[in-house]
Design a protein around this nucleic acid. Sequence first.
RNA 1: CGGGAUGUGGCGCAGUUUGGCUAGCGCACCUGCUUUGGGAGCAGGGGGUCGGGAGUUCAAAUCUCCCCAUCCCGACCA
Length: 566
Amino acid sequence: MRWSNLFIPTLRDAPADAEAASHALLVKGGFIRQLHAGHYSMLPLGWKVHQKVAAIVREEMNAIGGQEFLLPTMHPAGVWKQSGRWDTMGEIMFRLTDRRENDLALGITHEEIFATVATELSSYKELPQIWYQIQTKFRDEARPKSGLLRVREFHMKDSYSFDLDWDGLDEQFEAHRVAYERIFERLGLPAFAVEASSGAMGGNTSTEFMVPCPAGEDDVIRCPNCDYAANIEKATSQLDPVEDNMPPPEPERFPTPGIRTIAALEKAGAPADRQIKTMVMVADDEVVLALVRGDHQLNTQKFIDATSTIVLRPATAEETQANLGALPGSLGAVGVSDLRIIADEALRGRTHMTTGANDDDWHYRGVDIERDIAVTEWADLREVSAGEPCVKCGTALEMIRCVEAGHIFKLGTMYAEKFGVTVSDAEGKQRPVVMGSYGIGIGRNMATIAETYHDEHGLKWPVSVAPYEAVVTILKLDEPTTAAAEELYRGLQARGVDVLLDDRDARAGVKFADAELIGIPYRLTVGPRSLADGEVELTVRANGDGKRIAVDVAVDTVADAVTAER
RNA sequence: CGGGAUGUGGCGCAGUUUGGCUAGCGCACCUGCUUUGGGAGCAGGGGGUCGGGAGUUCAAAUCUCCCCAUCCCGACCA
């Protein structure tokens, strides 16, 4: 393509409200424009990158036997009611009504729709199946942010596997894990797999693929020594045991005037690891107590997973007062019998603990949690901190901020049962199929690549996803220079290189700056000065290297480099 | 949803405190001349419901009220 004919609206100044590097550079480079919060127009350059990312995903899905579909984005409420998720999805789902007042939803994911199609599976001989699509998803995110990293409308590759049994699912899951690793490698992303919370998807196992990035929104706990890695919503660690000596026969009430915090109580003689922190939560309109050790933090996702909660919020001061008779600072679970009490595993077996007495300015000490508190359920609720010992090898864990680039789930038979997706097995018995689902956001991966590959001059796309693989820059629009550049351009096209010819009537500095901003991996600069020596200049965007090469080897040099890096 | 900030040509901004000239500057755009290997110079030119509505006033980008939008932090979130 000739640059003079293209719409590549580069800007001298990035919009002031773009903070993430990918956001600023994608706008500045003329790849995207915002329509409104969380909705972006893909301009020609952006769409080319998007399509190249999608093509890599498609190739790898096809390689593991995936079959491409395209399902509707707008769904009748009925299918969502059938799975039960019409009620459990909450505000994340855009809902609307048609002229006949039928309830409709915009798809946030497609388990329900693929399950509906899958009812036509009838025999185990048809299994396994891997079905996928690359299609628009809508999610009414509370806070879209950082350009393409978190939006409300985006393209996702979502795939679904159907197997006769769990062993089959394990194979599909593994096939996807390997496919995803290949995808991220081809995208140039240093992604790694971590244990994850399955959240609203259901199922019992899920793995996220994380890319370290300060603009990300997830914290990952990773062991620098062994292979342990988990989202902080799932991560655990070893804890040093705390010795509880001299358990007293019963809790002792003592006055703590003005003491409202763990730290203040510590000064009054109760070490934080000998305190029980009591938090009052409202889980789907039910008041529930969450107990963690004084020096630990509650991870709300762990609490949600442990209690199968849909909507969780802290109780208001009024609700707390009404249920426990005291305000935060003096709360405890001793003697509470009418509320669910979820306690963190780190508290199991502890005695000689201090906790609030549900009477402002009073606490109990000498509490034996199993004797004195009616714990309903024990669960892993506490949030791991960096530096704690790895559960597998004891090495100090590190915490890394990441972007979630992909997420794969073992779903089981829940959707098959809700939708009646059954097949006959070899004995002629009807069995529900075992499903998995697997997602990669295309635009988010594009933005994550931009986050990973850029410098002060602009983007530095890997060849695999670059909007153009090479650019031939004409420095002087006279006949001999133009003719030489055109010949290189045609030569590269003949070698199958996705090449751009910068034939604009602009100064050299403008052309160089634009080529660097939009991140073309290879630039051939054709000017009368070097041409007089029978040479052109080859500049590599990735490392800034520039060198002169003979005109007659230029096409092969660039084409070979591009081909090697695809 | 809570907190903070911002809305003035395509982009970046000034002007608002203290109401008052035809709403200004840089970039970008158009024309001409010169220039031409790292975002050119000179001259001329086009483009703006000052986020929207209502109000106060002789007079509103500027003051008042209401609303909307966007960004950041948090909550939340596959």
